[in-house]
Amino acid sequence: MARKRILITGAAGFLGSHLCDRFIKEDFDVIAMDNLITGDLRNIEHLFPLENFEFHHHDVSKFVYVSGNVDYILHFASPASPIDYLKIPIQTLKVGSLGIHNLLGLARSKKSRLLIASTSEVYGDPTVNPQPEEYWGNVNPVGPRGVYDEAKRFQEAMTMAYHTFHGLETRIVRIFNTYGPRMRLNDGRVLPAFIGQALRGEDLTVFGDGSQTRSFCYVDDLVEGIYRLLFSDYSQPMNIGNPDEITIREFGEEIIKLTGTKQKMVFKELPTDDPKQRRPDITKARKILNWEPKVGRAEGLKITYEYFKSLPEKEINHKDFTYYNNK
């Protein structure tokens, strides 16, 4: 029996590479696509020798061609950290608009099922906690985060239009804060930033008073949720994340304890539009997918810390970035 074929965009990124691993494990033919603007080939180089894996160096904001049949498409191509989408705002908007248009066209021509990676950022700085899928959000379209937030909101709207107008099989996952091996230590997100500062013996930088909350989902749990959603019959947006909420201050204390460092936390001004709360309502995922996170934060952080400790010293000591608490 012939293997099913799946195209994964953003395949050399943090989440994309873990999805490549999962679908290789499930005996799919995996077509990986990435323009490497934020991705890293080291994340998928272990897959290159496999006969059921192929890599295409391509920007999905330009016309996308794949020969042969394609059964499924996962669209994960997009800058996802603040340092990236503040540095490359136009590319961020293009991959969420031109990119999704190209992939929807491909899915329609190939009769593929398409799953898009949306984000908790569509909720903006929420006035509801936890955030259910029915919440429309509180987003500033012209603020510094608007290029990412609105790209993802447009991507959802475009996907639903193809679903309702063309009858295309689509799935939408709203991803909440996720962590694990292959995160970039200098990508601007609070978890790798805290660990990086601890490894360098620096104080941990907290923006605001540290009372803002986040909830962190280990990457293996997220991948399992995405896998179940892809093969479900549910076409509306679905939250996938860990509802175990923690303040940034408490999280900093956990990192200090985990790393055994003697640093303290220092506080700086909160960035514009930084969300005060971030926690998923996963009622739908529990009911429809029979999914909920299994990996506790203590276990996941230990694995992630060991990964970061194993990085080359030059990566650990690279500090040419700004980070925000918002991811």
Rank of each mutant, 00 (worst) to 15 (best):
R153E: 10
R278M: 07
N140T: 05
A117K: 01
I100T: 12
F308S: 04
L106A: 11
Q155H: 08
F216N: 01
F165P: 11
L289M: 13
G146F: 10
V142C: 10
D149M: 09
K257H: 06
T322Y: 12
E245M: 01
I44E: 00
T272F: 14
L230V: 10
E202Q: 11
L199W: 10
K152Y: 04
T38I: 14
G241T: 06
H46G: 09
A32M: 12
Y162A: 06
P243S: 02
A285S: 08
G196K: 11
R297L: 01
E156H: 10
G105I: 08
L222N: 07
G99N: 12
F154K: 04
D27G: 07
L47K: 15
S67L: 13
D320C: 03
G252T: 07
L104E: 02
I256A: 14
H58D: 01
A157M: 15
V295D: 15
M158F: 03
P181K: 06
N290P: 05
T119Y: 03
D40Q: 13
I172N: 03
E313V: 15
P130H: 04
F28D: 03
A32G: 06
F53K: 13
G10M: 11
F48W: 04
C217M: 15
I316N: 04
I256E: 09
P243Q: 11
L222W: 02
V147H: 07
L86D: 12
D71Y: 05
G137H: 04
L115W: 00
T272P: 05
Q212H: 02
T322F: 08
G210I: 06
L199T: 00
A80F: 05
E253I: 09
I116S: 03
T205G: 14
Q155M: 05
F53P: 14
H56V: 05
V219K: 03
L230T: 06
R297F: 14
L222V: 15
R3N: 03
E51S: 02
Y72M: 11
R153M: 08
D59W: 00
A285Y: 00
C217P: 07
R279S: 04
L185C: 02
V70C: 04
E169T: 02
F251E: 05
F267E: 09
K4H: 15
G225D: 14
